[in-house]
Design a protein around this nucleic acid. Structure first.
Length: 568
DNA sequence: GCCGTTTTCGGCCCGACTGTTTTCAGTCG
């Protein structure tokens, strides 16, 4: 028996009870019990007080005892026999929850998506009390969409949709200001929809203009406070817009940024002080509503510092506020160590990239084009590298306010050798080693390649260490704990590649690396000026792993970078 | 079902929108 099994049992019990139309506080109690175990960092063996945890009571405790003693839960077995398995997918149909599903099963014997479809076509559903013609049609339409509707979208897919919507919002003069909220603002790897807070005095006008401007597959809800639509794009994605006044903005963006658990924790905190949080402000016992100029002020109202969106997760972040002072922030970033130019597969010249980094206020930067093995990317031969070094050195003479270092993103070849020899590497200031080929090798072969790079005294950093593309491919499956050990042993940096396709290393590994004392560089891997902005997503993602300023090398001052990395 | 230096009963985070009703339940985020 392990903790995961207990958690999954609670979740299943909750699901079945929901389908039976049980009291939703009862359902929530089982979900909460699952959450309590999930949030506890200890393993099952270490939890001798499991039955006395807050949130575990008589009913949930009996399930745990049952599982520990018999390896299965009588309650779950009973529920599985009572509730047809075919009902579970019905919860995926928008507009159908436990109560209505229970009602349909009771009244006309619905036990699967197929029987519901048939009942809709035979117009039996609209005869059930509480259901009407409209609901029947909606259910039928949703059943047809069930297969095509995608659950989660990768952050790079969401980013494109967010940009598109922002362009439309900017074009509407009745909008004073707006901001994306929701899981995208928290820099989640995946989101199920996008949320926007829109400040306007004329919600009706804005709603109509949005309905006219956006590519629509469906309108889910359209009121004066909110607009909810399904966008007709490559992938059909839902978008929610909340219309608020300027005074309500701070409370609204906090509320709709979430996470849900963060909000619940904040509301419990408010309640303990006799206050009530809603998306419109904070209400005291006299019904007086306070609004705020900023989220900072909102948090200050509860004696809390500003909690960055990226760390708003389980609610436990509120117990870690003393760590926020050291947390990496965008304004700490002084440099970017990984970018490409027209010398290989980048879109802009070295000078253009330098100008763009100066505009960002960076004090130093590294040019890192691909190497000869990567022919599709026009990788540099040794001769071209030396030419490039000369050009960079001369450009560096020109610019007094930014230090430009000569680097490379060198391929680690499939046979576990490096693309450049040591002599050439010694002429460079900063050497990145990367895998771009033969992802399907065994883990042993991959680790052999990475070890070669790690051992080389000229290599400074391993880029995108796992090669993953979020939601598309897992990468080359390295043994990351081992990689972190090597980074520690040989004093190498590991990258957090900030490109939203990658975000590599992932959160769990960043946490591991920081704990091991390994330094991280957050880099954009920009192939165009515009992509330098990915630093913002990268830093947010780093915050999810609670990376400190000290851990992130590109937050270090130039002098320290030269002393500890370039001249080491 | 869980919980309690206000409570062992009556709450549980809070509000918008839809569709069904004719004042509100259900669903959703």
């Amino acid at each position: 028996m392990n903790k995961k099994t207990i958690i999954r049992t609670f979740e299943k019990i909750a699901l079945y009870m929901e389908l039976l139309g049980e009291n939703h506080f009862k359902v929530a109690a089982f979900r909460k019990a699952a959450n309590v175990l999930e949030l506890d960092p200890r393993s099952l063996a270490e939890m001798d007080d499991i039955l006395t945890l807050k949130g575990i009571g008589k009913g949930t405790g009996a399930v745990i005892t049952d599982l520990l003693e018999n390896g299965e839960s009588d309650l779950l077995k009973e529920l599985e026999q009572t509730v047809p398995k075919g009902l579970i997918p019905l919860l995926k149909i928008p507009g159908l929850g436990g109560k209505r599903i229970a009602k349909l099963r009771e009244a006309i014997g619905i036990d699967s998506v197929e029987s519901l479809r048939e009942a809709c076509i035979a117009e039996k559903v609209s005869k059930v009390p509480g259901f009407g013609k409209k609901t029947e049609q909606n259910i039928l339409a949703e059943i047809e969409l069930l297969g095509s509707r995608q659950g989660k979208f990768a952050i790079w897919q969401v980013e494109k949709v967010v940009s598109l919507i922002e362009t439309e919002l900017q074009a509407i003069p009745e909008i004073t200001r707006f901001s994306v909220a929701g899981s995208y603002r928290r820099a989640e790897e995946e989101s199920s929809d996008v949320d926007f807070i829109v400040v306007t005095e004329e919600p009706g006008t804005v709603r109509e203009k949005l309905l006219a401007a956006l590519p629509l597959a469906a309108t889910i809800a359209a009121g004066d406070a909110k607009l909810s639509v399904t966008l007709d794009l490559e992938d059909q994605m839902d978008a929610d817009f909340r219309f608020v006044t300027d005074e309500q903005f701070a409370s609204a963006i906090h509320h709709f940024t979430g996470s849900k658990d963060h909000n619940i924790r904040m509301r419990q905190l408010a309640k303990s002080k006799g206050l009530k949080i809603s998306e419109y402000g904070v209400e005291d016992e006299n019904g007086q509503i306070t609004t705020f100029d900023s989220e900072e002020q909102f948090f200050a109202h509860f004696d809390l510092p500003f909690i960055p969106p990226a760390v708003r997760g389980t609610g436990r972040e509120i117990d870690r506020i003393e760590e926020l002072d050291d947390l990496i922030e965008l304004q700490d970033i002084r440099s970017d160590f990984h970018m490409h130019t027209t010398w290989s597969d980048g879109g802009y010249s070295i000078r253009e990239m330098v100008e763009a980094c100066r505009a960002k206020g960076y004090t130093h930067m590294v040019i890192t084009d691909h190497t000869q093995y990567l022919k599709v990317a026009n990788g540099l031969t040794p001769d071209r590298v030396r030419e490039q070094i000369a050009e960079i050195r001369s450009l560096n003479e020109e610019y007094k306010d930014i230090e430009i270092f000569c680097g490379t993103e060198m391929d680690i070849l499939p046979d576990a050798t490096l693309d450049f020899d040591d002599e050439l590497l010694s002429e460079l200031d900063f050497v990145i080693a990367s895998i771009h080929s033969n992802f399907n090798q065994t883990q042993e072969q991959i680790m052999d390649r990475l070890h070669t790079a790690m051992k080389n005294p000229h290599v400074d950093m391993i880029a995108h260490p796992t090669g993953r593309i979020i939601g598309q491919r897992d990468g080359y499956d390295p043994d990351v704990p081992q990689l972190i050990q090597w980074a520690k042993e040989y004093g190498k940096l590991l990258e957090l590649n900030a490109n939203p396709y990658r975000l590599d290393l992932a959160t769990e590994h960043l946490i591991m690396a920081q704990e091991a004392g390994v330094r991280i560089a957050i880099n954009t891997d920009a192939h165009a000026i515009d992509q330098l902005k990915y630093m913002e997503i990268g830093v947010k993602y780093a915050q999810k792993a609670w990376l400190k300023k000290e851990t992130v090398v590109n937050a270090w001052p130039l002098e320290r970078f030269i002393r500890d990395i370039i001249r080491k």
